[in-house]
Nucleic acid binder design. Structure first.
Length: 102
DNA sequence: GGGCTGACTTTTC
DNA sequence: AGAAAAGCCAGCC
């Protein structure tokens, strides 16, 4: 049994349009948890490896990937992003891609 | 049931 | 402009 918040996060993630990205804060805000940015990360860290959710479209507020640039998770996410046409340079994406609004 | 944790954010120096 | 510190909140032990 998943908690309501967890399910909420899931639905929000799946609602992020392809080719765009959202920050943890944006997702948290969307989930009615304005101060719950870290919580999002916490939930995502618990995601099963076989998830189909676009977790890779979630970045930090400054456009950076949340992982260390030398970690395998970082490279994985970067690749997924570029597959969607999202350019990643210097570990960051174009801030204009944060156009996701509700 | 209490304390720790973290895929963050914002404010301050 | 770059670094440090303090909030924040549900989940996990």
């Amino acid at each position: 049994m998943k908690s309501e918040v967890e399910v909420l996060i899931y639905s929000i993630l799946s609602a992020i349009p392809k080719g765009q990205v959202a920050s943890y804060g944006q997702v948290a805000n969307f989930a009615r948890l304005p101060k719950g940015a870290r919580l999002i990360g916490r939930i995502l860290s618990r995601l099963p490896p076989e998830t189909t959710l676009p977790w890779h479209r979630v970045l930090k507020a400054n456009g950076q990937i949340a992982f260390a640039p030398d970690s395998s998770a970082y490279h994985r996410q970067k690749q997924l992003l570029e597959l969607e046409g999202i350019k990643v340079s210097q570990g960051k994406v174009d801030l204009r891609l944060f156009g996701w609004r509700d």
